[in-house]
Design a protein around this nucleic acid. Structure first.
Lengths: 161, 161
DNA sequence: TCCGGTGAGTTCCTTCAAGGAACTTAGTTG
DNA sequence: CAACTAAGTTCCTTGAAGGAACTCACCGGA
């Protein structure tokens, strides 16, 4: 599918993957640890881990050869997916916060302060959210329906983000 | 669940929701439009829309009373979820881009440039990704297991982000 | 006035994936 | 040798997704 969102969802679209990723991110990196922490079926966990490794989001590392023991670590690709988690956390904290406040806090290495993420424009560095942009077709957009059997129908392909 | 990611996923965790949201975001806002554009089952679409409306992500507006016609629009809560989509798009473009380049581009209203989102620290405004933070337990974190029947087990609750 | 068309869903059935529990394998400790 | 742990597999059952057809309200044209 041409849509970048669909391509991202293809990798981490089903609901367990972000949670698995998050566990690996905070250091819960072994099979049984993850399984117990999430209360996920072992079968599904094995499938998801395999998929994430195949898609180069996680790496399966042997940290002991006898007995053979493995852990999962984030690749660079996977670490950038964790950025997505930070944005999810921010939204969850803002809009679905429990009574008690956010369950975790993030301290920014650079400034040492407890903080959260904001979206900024890569060009001008000012704030840039979904409400602050126009959406335009890009180079990878689908061509505008080269063989319309009936001209005049208002059926045109949408350019997926 | 205490984890903010899980709470966010509870709202838009299954794979169709982000795509539905994205369609509404770009102006594909009516039932049949969305259904055809995504090729989603009408049943599942009706369920998802109902859920998103119940969770105050979308609003169901009647834009014509006779005949009764409806469209779905984003609430403020939903618009902020679209920020998440921008980050997804960015990741998809970076890591799973097709040959042809990104299918859509975003022009920032403030500077007029084609751009993409970056994550910045809300305190110091510098870049802040998942690799740039420490994770600490927050006020809503689970208390450290008040009634351990056996002291000494290395079983402690994880604080979910 | 009746006919077909459209938007917005329901209903029903079939298939696929998730969940759960038990089993496997390799090696290690007592 | 028996029990134990980590890391999966295998098998079965239930729940959700997909698909096609049906409903309902209304409209516009012959």
């Amino acid at each position: 599918m041409a849509c970048s969102i669909a391509r991202t969802l293809d990798v981490i679209g089903e609901p367990w993957s972000p949670l698995i990723l998050r566990n690996v991110y905070v250091g819960i990196s072994r099979f049984d640890q993850i399984q117990q922490s999430l209360d996920i079926s072992r079968k599904v966990l094995a499938e998801r881990l395999k998929w994430l490794v195949e898609n180069d989001v996680l790496e399966r590392r042997e940290y002991s050869s006898r007995p053979p023991r493995h852990e999962y670590t984030l690749t660079a690709k996977g670490m950038e997916l964790c950025d997505l988690l930070l944005v999810m956390v921010r939204w969850g904290d803002r809009w679905t916060a429990g009574e008690a406040g956010p369950p975790v806090l993030y301290r920014h290495h650079a400034c040492g302060e407890i903080s959260h993420v904001e979206l900024h424009c890569s060009v001008c560095d000012r704030r840039m959210g979904a409400a602050d942009v126009d959406v335009l077709p890009g180079p990878g957009a689908e061509p505008p329906a080269p063989s319309p059997d009936q001209a005049g129908t208002d059926r045109y392909e949408h350019a997926g983000p």
